[in-house]
Design a binder for these strands. Structure first.
Length: 860
RNA sequence: GCCGUGGUGCUGGAACAGGUAGACAGGUAGGUCUCAAAAACCUAUGGUGCGAAAGCCCCGUGUGGGUUCGAUUCCCACCCACGGCACCA
């Protein structure tokens, strides 16, 4: 047994690869087909790569290597999504600049990735926190603003009263602040909002042009949540109120005759007007309403959830008219109506909705059935919710119709009366784009008392993050940038008057929205840096004034932005052919970046002929620790890749991760099972070395058996790799090795070369070493992938199963040229003694013959 | 509650288009080597029953039905687990 010294081999090849340069993608190479393989770029945390990173990136790397060897011009880049809270918190705690911490962390990540032999094109590395990168993130925002897709609005955000900071939903764990554990509340802050809802339909329909796996498509469509129905206007029965009608959204306009009351959200304008008006007659009512609003606002999200289904509300004292039958129905106020969805007002149909039903019973409101079920139904006990099945009743002109027809007719009726129309609504909300943190891209906007919100002059980009002394947010909840007077105070780009900068920064998603585009023209990004370094370093922060114009080289002397300049390169590389990442990004990141892509397409700065940025999205599974829970620091069940590759070597770690289960499935980590891979690679190594030794007892390389086995293996590994079924590829390699050892197969250099190539994507170091051993030319990773040779596959004997009445009773070996001849196979099958036993004395009713598979006798 | 994914030996998992269920690996048991152990290698390994043995019968892919010559795979109903969303009108 030859013991392989993986440490020595890794060191040796690491040096060679570093010297000869890593893998480069060639822009616009017409001699090869392109393949853009993208894996989500990591947030470079202080802890370094974890197993999850290693797992998904290994999968991507194996695929990229396979494509490269198969003759593709492969773009396989890597970068850093480096803005983020952990780095900011680290800065708050230690006072160390985030820029510095980021540098250390990315250096560490890069070193680890090289160690793991990920074949990234390092010349295309990008970092979202580089000013020359975020200049364009800011530029995109300005375009959104110019197209009316970004606006400022007061919105409630999660607020930690102890940290005095706004929190993202992800930072609120069970109603408590992730950092300090204090109970969080809501606070109204003026925020930048991006109108992603304008793109809702296209974000849904664009999916048809992709081959995302089903669950990703479903997640996107659910998140967008399109529902069709109608908007219906109810006239308000009050002469004194300014609001003359209430508009509701419903998906079931056909049940309009069953609407016995309306519900408005506490934040609805009607409520505000009621409280401000001085309607004396209703003063007692007003008090009640005030109390209800107060308790509703006092409720935290947690409390609301705890209340489960028990709904509370209060009568507003106002009535409205049902437009189809002029019935007078009461308007209630309750927080189960949401101001953020639909119109903030709903019509309640207690006979056919369980929530409305419970509410009606509690407050003794009438329940009128309008869809008659086929079964007997007690409407006072429970609602009939299966409204698609039944017949309309109690509904005037639409009585007797089926519900789907009733919907159409009702809408027609409403349109005639000018009381409603068809409408579509979405679950998707507009995107809150402001963060009150330091470590993010400054939003490039200026607030002028005369001109309002004005974007920064594009020539002044990037608006750099100024250095601050303290990274904590201010007492008012603004970002620490607000404390820097000479940064905040500036002049208006429009009128030249005094103005103030926006101090909010962008969310994490902003930088990752377009990073896959940046990889394509990463070399240009560097050139688009501000060139006059001398002047730049003298400035404490870059301030937006005309003086600075000359120092900016963003536009490279042309009037074009970087996307337009790169159109040819983009149309060569796009779309991303395979995008690998985690489930956690299947909704937000994927949706946001698709939105930005479609938006840039509309702007005309990227090729419009490619409608979607990602063609095939594949999401890898979650890794479970040995306790069968998701691997995470808080569970204390993590495995550090460092420890494993030091002990077993990179090849073992990579091959094991790919072998332990299907790439898309949930993966259970089991250190023990690593042993199997260690044995396999050791044996593989020995097999190649010992093959050179002439031994007369071996089966020669010219034997059909060996040829067939290799052809089979090539076919299996090739087809499996092209669909990212890594685990079965490795199993096939193992099976081949078992056979080759047992049967003492002798192989020639060409055959051995094929075998080594098949292993190369998984175990780059070992295969490179063995390639050298057999005298292969150049690097195995630059060699051509073996071709599938059908010729040998046709020459083998095939085992055919023989069934009697569908039960397996025996097998026979059939020469492949006779495979397709039924009579031939049948004759041979009848002779088989095990089968004859079952056929004796029976009558064969039918014979089913599947060429190459089986023959089945149906007997009586 | 809704959406999605899945349920196969002791364990991780195979089975590509309805056609030999359990590939490949771990574990376990027995063996070889060794003073001994580790490592390595060899053999066996879904369950029950019959047989001295070669071998043979039956059962078996969450549960219950169905379609079919034949079902882990397709259809219907249900149970369970995981992931996502959740007062969405």
């Amino acid at each position: 047994m030859n013991k392989r010294d993986f440490k020595k081999q890794e060191k040796k090849w690491q040096a060679v690869w570093e010297k000869q340069g890593w893998y480069k993608a060639v822009d616009s190479d017409k001699t090869k087909k392109k393949k853009y393989v993208l894996v989500e770029f990591p947030y470079p945390s202080g802890e370094g790569l974890h197993v999850g990173h290693a797992f998904s990136m290994t999968g991507a790397d194996v695929y990229a290597r396979f494509c490269r060897m198969s003759g593709f011009n492969v773009l396989f880049p890597m970068g850093w999504d480096a803005f983020g809270l952990p780095t900011e918190n680290y800065a708050i705690k230690t006072g160390i600049q985030p820029q510095l911490a980021t540098k250390n962390n990315t250096d560490n990540f890069r070193r680890q990735m090289k160690k793991l032999a990920f074949s990234f094109d390092w010349e295309r590395e990008v970092n979202t926190t580089d000013p020359d990168y975020y200049a364009w993130t800011q530029w995109i925002f300005i375009q959104l603003f110019k197209k009316g897709l970004a606006y400022k609005e007061e919105k409630p955000i999660n607020w930690c009263p102890s940290c005095k900071i706004g929190l993202a939903n992800e930072e609120v764990i069970n109603g408590k602040c992730e950092r300090c554990g204090a109970e969080t509340g809501k606070k109204n802050l003026s925020q930048w909002i991006v109108k992603i809802t304008d793109y809702a339909d296209r974000l849904a329909s664009g999916l048809e042009k992709t081959v995302f796996i089903q669950k990703v498509k479903a997640a996107q469509i659910n998140w967008i949540g399109r529902s069709t129905g109608a908007r219906i206007k109810f006239k308000v029965q009050s002469a004194k109120l300014k609001i003359k009608e209430l508009e509701v959204f419903t998906t079931r306009p056909d049940t309009l005759w069953g609407a016995t009351f309306l519900v408005v959200a506490p934040e609805h304008p009607l409520v505000a007007e009621l409280l401000s008006s001085k309607l004396k007659a209703q003063s007692s009512k007003l008090k009640e309403i005030r109390e209800y609003i107060k308790t509703s606002q006092g409720k935290s999200e947690l409390e609301r959830a705890e209340l489960e289904k028990e709904k509370n509300g209060v009568f507003s004292g106002v009535y409205a008219l049902n437009p189809v039958n002029n019935e007078k129905i009461p308007v209630w106020i309750s927080d189960f109506a949401l101001i953020s969805y639909g119109t903030g007002a709903i019509m309640a149909v207690p006979a056919h909705d369980s929530r409305d039903h419970a509410f009606a019973k509690k407050y003794e409101l009438p329940i009128i059935p309008v869809v008659k079920p086929s079964r007997k139904w007690d409407f006072s006990q429970k609602p009939y919710e299966d409204v698609d099945h039944g017949k309309m009743i109690n509904s005037g002109p639409i009585n007797g119709l089926k519900p789907q027809e009733a919907i159409k007719k009702t809408i027609k009726l409403l349109v005639e009366k000018k009381a409603g129309k068809r409408a579509v609504d979405y679950h998707l909300r507009d995107w809150i784009f402001s963060r009150q943190h330091y470590w993010g891209e400054p939003i490039p906007m200026i607030d002028c008392s005369k001109c309002g919100w004005v974007p920064v002059d594009e020539a002044d980009l990037p608006i750099r993050l100024p250095e601050v002394e303290k990274y904590e947010p201010t007492d008012t909840g603004e970002s620490p940038l607000a404390n820097i007077k000479d940064w905040v105070e500036t002049t208006c780009p429009e009128c030249g008057g005094k103005a103030r900068r926006e101090t909010d920064t962008m969310p994490n998603w902003a930088g990752s929205d377009w990073y896959y585009l940046a990889y394509c023209f990463a070399n240009k990004l560097k050139k688009s840096q501000i060139t006059n370094h001398k002047e730049q370093t003298n400035l404490k922060y870059q301030i937006s004034n005309k003086k600075n114009l000359d120092t900016c080289n963003l536009k490279l002397g042309t009037s074009q932005d970087i996307f337009s300049q790169s159109k040819n390169i983009l149309s060569y590389w796009l779309p991303v052919d395979v995008y690998l990442g985690g489930d956690e990004h299947n909704t937000l990141h994927l949706l946001y970046s698709r939105f930005i892509y479609q938006f840039l397409g509309d702007l005309g700065v990227i090729p419009k002929s490619i409608p979607e940025p990602y063609y095939w999205r594949l999401s890898h599974g979650v890794i479970l620790g040995t306790d069968n829970r998701r691997m995470s620091k808080s569970h204390g069940n993590t495995v550090e890749p460092d420890r494993l590759w030091r002990k077993y070597g990179v090849d073992v770690l990579r091959t094991y991760m790919m072998f332990m289960g299907p790439f898309e499935g949930t993966i259970a980590w089991n250190d023990n099972a690593l042993k199997g891979v260690v044995r396999f690679l050791d044996r593989f190594y020995s097999f190649v070395l010992e093959n050179k030794v002439k031994n007369t007892s071996k089966v020669g390389f010219d034997s059909l058996e060996v040829k067939v086995a290799i052809s089979r293996l090539v076919k299996k590994v090739t087809t499996d790799l092209s669909t990212c079924r890594f685990n079965t590829s490795i199993a096939a390699l193992m099976k081949f090795l078992n056979q080759a050892e047992k049967k003492k197969w002798q192989m020639n250099n060409e055959q051995m070369g094929k075998l080594i190539k098949l292993l190369a994507p998984f175990a780059p170091y070992l295969s490179e070493e063995l390639w050298e051993v057999i005298g292969g030319r150049g690097s195995v990773h630059a060699s051509a992938w073996p071709k599938i040779e059908e010729k040998h596959l046709k020459e083998e004997n095939i085992t055919i199963a023989i069934q009697v009445n569908g039960r397996l009773r025996g097998t026979i070996a059939v020469k492949s040229e006779k495979l397709k001849v039924k009579s031939e196979v049948e004759k041979q099958a009848r002779k088989e003694p095990k089968v004859a036993k079952y056929l004796k004395g029976k009558k064969i009713v039918k014979t089913i013959f599947v060429p190459g598979r089986l023959i089945n006798f149906v007997v009586k």
